[in-house]
Nucleic acid binder design. Structure first.
Length: 878
RNA sequence: GGGAGCUUAGCUCAGCUGGUUCAGAGCAUCUGCCUUACAAGCAGAGGGUCGACGGUUCGAAUCCGCCAGCUCCCA
């Protein structure tokens, strides 16, 4: 069979993925083997996969394939997330731009129809990408967070937690997105530093009777447009400047409201003027002050961020326009003392990044977190759930868990699970899964059965559904105790970005502990953030994230996987550059060419040539050594290092050394035994690499030999790493060092590759060369390899270790080049000897260091002295 | 303001429990090769006082402290 010049990824990839699917290799059903389970962190259906997903999914596939090949029943569950607010925003925009439809024109049902169309389209794109990347997911288990069973599970959990008193409804200060017109949780607010202004405004002071004292009190505020909501002025009780104002009041400008001057240690005397205007409706700290001092709450903002009737002035104006107008009005009335540049942090909506979040008092649904947090904190602290890398994230996790605040889970959106609370006309409500049960509950609670009840209009936060992901993909909530959940739960590893440690990881652990009394996964592997070449975060707005399908077109899926894995140690950010994919493509070609070489050989029983037994024995040992190393790296989740080790094993050890050592002469047959072992090694290498680069390895595996039905790399089970003979490895190192040194000498003597040499070694240790002499001779193009007992006149001399080599050539030896080499080495060795001698002459070292360390130093010194002697002798000859 | 992490070759990064597998890999650079698997390749070479300063130790890129710069998280 004729093999193409280079490896062609596209054909192989489609072919093998289709083949794996037909054979149902990714299908998992419970059996007697131990399970290895990964649930995909569901990408949301708002768009396509970016490089961050690519990294995540590559890591998951590597772990899954490795487990599948190591005796586990590997199950990787794919899926996607409805992403309530993000998707709804996209759909609303799409409707407006493409169809000219406003959301307000649609009924809930009509809107959901469009949303599902959107979901099908983008969900489909994501699944296509996962497939192209080669992910070995069980396609029969695809789950969406709005599937019927999933929807039911979310509702069931809501009802259950409400019943346990862990969910409550109440008016609290929440984060409000005035663009999406919905509440957000604390985690959905992103803070940015901006340059703002601090406005100093003076309020007239009046006494209890309302008579002006003629005095003014000046406050500093960033938000003058909230002045109309002020219900107090607060100063520090220890502040001498204001002590005399006890029992006094201030007049709020523009609305002329009389508000008390209150005293609280919360106020920082040093900040601004030391006097604070208190607006309980629009600032969380002011809200708390208001609660403490029983202040009135005047909410001056509408849901869309315009001023409400309660503001009295500038009603209906947008909050930022209103700010300008308020400032102008204050200025006009002579109440604006000064404006000051000021840097501050403002909260923005994560999903509407241009929208400043408004702190607002609102009646919403909350999850009480402290009780849920406790077992979830313990699970990580006591090591039940292990976080990789190390425990870098442990402190962050602990801090959040120990200071966790109640979770606002209601959203004023339609795309999501509708809150199962049912209201009567008076606003009395019950929580129940269906209207029918709600009516029963209502009757039991209030004594009468109304004709109907109105369901809460709002839906639940996406994360309130995704926290059930590890269990509900196996129907652990909707059908508890089923065979799947019993077998697959808890899952093995969760691979995700560190940015959602609170959104998701922490809450999944809470849900797992609450509903299974058990962790949802044993290990969490945090990948870093993917950045571009300049170190910028990849984002849609910057447009600096490459298109995955385009990358796969250009380089092939294996090369993309290689490129993203080769430089991404766990938890560290990686700067992604196309060139690393290129390196992956070169690697494909390297293996492909090795295949071509091997396939062109003809095995024969008696070739007449010497059999390279040493090479065969060495590579077996070298393979075992790396195999064991790779297994250890897998256990430690150090995947990029494992890939590097395999890369080097294949490229350097196998291609550059081993294949050259056993390569028969041009058009000569190869020894049948060596050929057989070589095919075997090649197979083992492909197997070791397969989790990282599944397509090319499967392809080569099938081209190496005819395979029986079912003999496929994707399910080929790893053997335990074999034993290692250190002597063989050491001899091979000696061979490599010698070859490199002689080649260097050949270069320095300007010998052409075709020029042959005679090589003679003067050594105390003839025995160690016996098995490698033919390899050395072949690799340095020596037609003679012999042993010498003294210097050979006219030969170039090279010192390797403590042995002296004499290179005999037809060309005249250039003594200058040789001398330079030797002198350089001599200088280094002398420096080295000095440092070792210094160490050994230090009595404290000899007395305190471990005996092995001292012994090692002595050996170093002896080796070094022998080498110096050899070099000096060689120099003398010149 | 609090906390975490990072700083090693021109670039991107490895270096786990302190002692020649400790100064490494890939890319880039330089030299020589179109050697019948591979020029997308082969054979070699050069290049770093491991951010600064202290400390612990017989011994520090590695442990501790402090400082500087960068990044992230939290307020």
């Amino acid at each position: 069979m004729e093999l193409s010049k280079n490896y062609i990824p596209a054909a192989a990839e489609d072919k093998w993925y289709q083949y794996w699917l037909e054979k149902q290799y990714f299908r998992s059903v419970p059996d007697g083997r131990p399970p290895f389970t990964i649930v995909i962190p569901p990408p949301n259906v708002t768009g396509v996969l970016h490089m961050g997903h690519t990294l995540n999914e590559t890591v998951q596939d590597i772990l899954t394939r490795h487990a599948r090949m190591s005796g586990f029943n590997a199950c990787w569950v794919p899926g996607s997330d409805h992403a309530s607010i993000a998707t709804e925003t996209k759909v609303v925009n799409m409707l407006k731009e493409e169809k000219g439809i406003e959301k307000s024109q649609l009924t809930r049902q009509e809107f959901l129809k469009y949303a599902y169309e959107w979901k099908d389209k983008y969900g489909g794109i994501i699944y296509h990408q996962i497939r192209k990347l080669g992910c070995s997911v069980d396609w029969d288990r695809v789950t969406f967070t709005m599937d019927q069973h999933y929807y039911d599970a979310v509702i069931r959990v809501f009802v259950d937690l409400y019943g346990k008193g862990l969910i409550y409804r109440g008016a609290r200060m929440i984060n409000w997105d005035p663009k999406a017109k919905t509440a957000l949780s604390d985690e959905e607010v992103e803070y940015k530093e901006i340059n703002g202004k601090l406005y100093h405004v003076k309020y007239a002071v009046v006494n209890a009777a309302g008579e002006p004292t003629g005095e003014f009190i000046t406050i500093a505020t960033q938000r003058p447009e909230t002045i109309m909501g002020d219900t107090a002025i607060c100063v520090n009780p220890d502040d001498a400047r204001y002590a005399h104002l006890k029992g006094h009041f201030a007049i709020v400008p523009l609305v002329n409201r009389k508000v008390p001057v209150i005293f609280d240690e919360y106020v920082d005397k040093e900040f601004g003027t030391g006097a604070l205007k208190v607006t309980p409706a629009h600032d969380i700290n002011d809200y708390n002050l208001g609660l403490k001092h029983n202040l009135e709450v005047v909410d001056t903002l509408n849901d869309d961020g315009t001023l409400s009737a309660a503001a009295e002035v500038f009603v209906g104006e947008d909050r930022f326009r209103a700010r300008k107008k308020v400032v102008a009005a204050l200025h006009e009335q002579g109440l604006l003392v000064k404006e000051q540049e000021y840097t501050t942090r403002l909260g923005y909506s994560q999903r509407n990044p241009d929208t400043v979040v408004e702190p607002k008092i609102s009646t919403q649904w909350f999850v009480k977190m402290s009780e849920l947090a406790k077992p979830a904190l313990d699970a990580v602290v006591n090591g039940e759930v292990r976080i990789h890398p190390g425990d870098r994230f442990l402190a962050t996790y602990k801090y959040w868990m120990e200071n966790v605040k109640d979770w606002c889970i209601s959203r004023q959106l339609w795309w999501g699970q509708q809150i199962p609370a049912w209201y009567d006309a008076q606003g009395q409500f019950v929580v129940a899964e269906t209207l029918e049960t709600a009516l029963d509950k209502y009757e039991a609670a209030y004594g009468s059965r109304p004709a109907t009840l109105r369901q809460d209009e709002d839906c639940l936060d996406t994360w309130f559904s995704s926290w059930l992901w590890p269990t509900e993909v196996f129907k652990g909530i909707s059908n508890p105790g089923n065979e799947d959940i019993n077998y697959y739960y808890p899952t093995s590893v969760l691979v995700t970005g560190q940015d959602i440690i609170f959104f998701w990881v922490a809450r999944m652990i809470m849900a797992g502990e609450e509903y299974h009394k058990e962790k949802p996964f044993s290990d969490v592997y945090f990948t870093g953030m993917v950045r571009d070449k300049q170190g910028r975060k990849m984002s849609k707005s910057l447009g600096n994230s490459p298109d995955l399908l385009d990358l796969i077109d250009r380089f092939g899926a294996d090369a993309v996987r290689f490129g993203i894995m080769i430089a991404s140690p766990a938890g560290n950010d990686l700067l992604f550059d196309d060139s690393s994919c290129e390196q992956g493509r070169f690697f494909n070609n390297k293996m492909w060419n090795a295949l071509k070489l091997v396939k062109m050989w003809t095995p024969a029983e008696n070739t007449g040539a010497p059999v390279p037994e040493f090479a065969v024995e060495w590579f077996g040992n070298r393979f075992n050594e790396v195999h064991a190393e790779v297994e250890k790296l897998f256990r430690d989740f150090r995947l990029s290092e494992a890939l590097k080790a395999i890369y080097s094993l294949i490229w350097d050890d196998f291609c550059s050394w081993y294949l050259e050592w056993i390569k028969p002469g041009f058009e000569q047959p190869i020894d049948a035994g060596v050929y057989k072992k070589t095919i075997e090694y090649f197979e083992q290498l492909m197997q070791l690499l397969h989790p990282f680069m599944p397509f090319v390895t499967e392809d080569i595996y099938h081209l190496l030999a005819d395979r029986a039905e079912g003999d496929d790399l994707v399910i080929k089970q790893f053997q335990a790493p074999g034993s290692i003979n250190a002597d063989i490895l050491a001899e091979a190192s000696l061979a490599k060092d010698t070859i490199t040194a002689i080649r260097d000498a050949r270069n320095k003597q300007q010998l052409k590759p075709k020029d042959t040499i005679g090589l003679f070694v003067e050594t105390q240790n003839k025995q160690s060369f016996k098995r490698i002499e033919s390899i050395i001779a072949k690799q340095v193009n020596a037609n003679e390899f012999g042993y010498a007992t003294e210097a050979i006149a006219g030969a170039a001399s090279i010192v390797v270790g403590t042995d002296k080599f004499y290179m005999v050539t037809d060309k005249e030896v250039d003594p200058a080049a040789q001398k330079e080499l030797l002198l350089k080495d001599l200088t280094y060795q002398q420096g080295f000897r000095n440092s070792v001698e210094k160490k050994l002459s230090n009595e404290k070292f000899v007395a305190n260091a471990k005996p092995e360390a001292v012994e090692a130093e002595r050996r170093k010194l002896a080796d070094c002295q022998a080498r110096i002697q050899a070099i000096e002798e060689s120099l003398k000859l010149l």
